[in-house]
Each structure stands twice: as structure tokens, then as C-alpha cells.
């Protein structure tokens, strides 16, 4: 970030993001008389908690009432989805993430994705692992554990089985590949090629949860049309 350009813009407020207490750049900006607020949404432990940060931004724009009702809807729909998921008679096993070079990156046990998978009433195979971020595991340990997983949710940037196979032929040895039960968030792209999932997901946890439920328990949401999470294309 270029501090000079930023000061020249003369914003009313800066929303900062900091990983630790070393915020030298922001201190400089504050000295220039521009107030700095830190966005801590990434510290939240549940998807709903993160969506609730809508309220924080609403205050800045003086739109508290509208936002409150929006968040209440999100919360209601999310909780309803959990209830629906509980009706499921099966609890499918789930594999996630993808391999790069030797390393298989997949969501850790305390991550949002793990929370979604839990709320969708599934058995995420790495649900008991520690950490909020991602796990970097060796291929063979993932293969040993996830080979027979019923579903593979979030297969990274690939949107077809062909692409997946070209990227790494080890993928084809998974049960979920053979039964075509792989789902990806990468279908919906924004204008500049970025994934809509990354941009919109934080404020739409209810949709993501329903997408997952639709994928693993289709019978529970017969009418529902998934938005972010879709099955990989066949070609």
C-alpha cells in the first residue's frame, strides 16, 4: 500500500487489517489525522459470527436497521438449514482440498469449512484436527484416510473431472472421483475472473450451508438451486 497516495485521497476513515500488534503504517496514518479501525472478522470462529460483521460496517454508513434485518434473515435461514440437515438419515464422509506439489492442503478441524460440514450433518474426516486455518498433509496420509470418502467438497480451482485428472492423476484413485461426487466453489466467476465465492461468501453463510446440504443430502432440499457449490463438469 502506498501511504502517500492514501493520504492524498483524504478518506474519512481507514479500515485496517492487521495480523499482529505491529501496526506501524497505520500509526503513521493516524498521525495524519485519519482515524483507523481494525477489521477483525477473520478472527471469528463461526461463519455466522463473521457475517455479523455486517453490523460493524452498517454503523459506519448509518444503515443499522436495514442491516439488522438482513443479518436476522441470514441467521434464521442458517439455523433452519441446520435443522433440515439434522433430518438426514445418513452421515456421509467428506474429503476436501487439493494437492499442490507434494502437499495436500485441506481445511483444519476448527475452520469455517469444517464448521459448515458439521452443520450440514456430515462426517468431515479431518474434523478432529487442530487449528483454524488449513492443514498441509502428505499425499499418502490423505489418500489412506480419504480414499473411500463419499463426497469431496471444495476441490480447489478445478471445475471439471478432466481438469482434475490432468492436474494430478492421483485424484482419479479416490472413490469420490469414480462416483463423480466432487463439488467445487470455482464455477461462479466475477467480471475479472476472481471467484465470487471468495468475495461474497463471508456475508452469505446460509447459502453456502444450503449448497453443501443440497450436495450431500439432495433429498432434503429438492427444490433448492445451489449457487456457489456445484458438481464438477463431466468434460
Amino acid at each position: 500500500m502506498n501511504t502517500e497516495v492514501l493520504l492524498d485521497l483524504q478518506p474519512e476513515i481507514i479500515i485496517g487489517f492487521a495480523m499482529n500488534s505491529n501496526t506501524k503504517m497505520f500509526d503513521n496514518i493516524e498521525k495524519a489525522g485519519i482515524p483507523v479501525m481494525f477489521n477483525g472478522d477473520w478472527l471469528e470462529e463461526t461463519p455466522l459470527g463473521r457475517a455479523e460483521w455486517l453490523k460493524f460496517f452498517a454503523i459506519l454508513f448509518e444503515k443499522e436497521t436495514v442491516t439488522d434485518s438482513i443479518f436476522n434473515t441470514i441467521e434464521k435461514e442458517y439455523n433452519e438449514a441446520i435443522t433440515i440437515a439434522k433430518k438426514a438419515t445418513t452421515k456421509p464422509t467428506i474429503l476436501s482440498g487439493s494437492i499442490f506439489k507434494d502437499i495436500w492442503n485441506l481445511p483444519a478441524g476448527d475452520s469455517f469449512m469444517a464448521q459448515y460440514l458439521k452443520d450440514a450433518n456430515t462426517d468431515y474426516l479431518w474434523a478432529n484436527s487442530q487449528g483454524k486455518g488449513s492443514l498441509s498433509l502428505s499425499f499418502e496420509s490423505v489418500f489412506e484416510k480419504g480414499q473411500h470418502a463419499d463426497f469431496w467438497i471444495d476441490s480447489g480451482i478445478y471445475i471439471s473431472y478432466k481438469e482434475l485428472e490432468n492436474a494430478n492423476k492421483h485424484y482419479t484413485k479416490f472413490e469420490a472421483f469414480k462416483t463423480k461426487n466432487i463439488y467445487s466453489f470455482a464455477h461462479q466467476k466475477g467480471e475479472n475472473g476472481g471467484l465470487l465465492y471468495y468475495e461474497l461468501a463471508p456475508t452469505q453463510p446460509h447459502i453456502i450451508l444450503k449448497d453443501i446440504i443440497k450436495a450431500v443430502h439432495p433429498e432434503l432440499l429438492p427444490e433448492y438451486e445451489p449457487f456457489f457449490l456445484k458438481q464438477l463438469n463431466n468434460n
Partner: peptide
């Protein structure tokens, strides 16, 4: 960013990635 990531991962070095 996407290309950069591809490059950065390449620099890590690995043996188990080859078919």
C-alpha cells in the same frame, strides 16, 4: 496473483509430484 502462486509453489521444490 494466480500466476504468482503457481510460481511460488514451484519454488518450494518437491519430488512426489511427478507421474
Amino acid at each position: 496473483a494466480e500466476k504468482l502462486q503457481q510460481y511460488v509453489f514451484w519454488t518450494f521444490g518437491s519430488l512426489g509430484n511427478l507421474g
